[in-house]
Nucleic acid binder design. Sequence first.
DNA 1: CTCCTGACATACA
DNA 2: ATGTATGCCAGGA
Length: 127
Amino acid sequence: MDGTNEQQKRKSGPVGSPGPDFFQRVWDVVAEIPVGKVTTYGHIAAHLGARSAARTVGWALKAAAGSGLPCHRVVNRFGALTGRRHFEGPFVMEERLRSEGVTFTDDGCVDLHRHLWVPDAAHKDET
DNA sequence: CTCCTGACATACA
DNA sequence: ATGTATGCCAGGA
């Protein structure tokens, strides 16, 4: 049988809630991103146990846009500000990161080599 | 109720 | 190496 629309069955499913809302979990991680640092959707998703759910992470950020969450510190694995269009303006995201000390490359991407932050590292080194 | 899209990423052909 | 297809979770038409 085809499994193309198998995902839709989740909606019709009775409960099967894995626990707290996936969104809430994403917001919790993003809220812990230190200033001057950035993380990627994949790292957040992987930290939540769903490395392939990177798309859903982006959705959570869109839902959190304007909720006071530093969603501007979350970029894709290339360091590109793919979500800048969901901000107050197309340049707000970059300006904010620059304001926090984040540097960019000539491609307009965040310098992940200097500002890449991983959620798992925060749990291990927690004073 | 069903199908598609979406701020991504990985696997396979 | 490039392109296509799928997976994940949630929401909108």
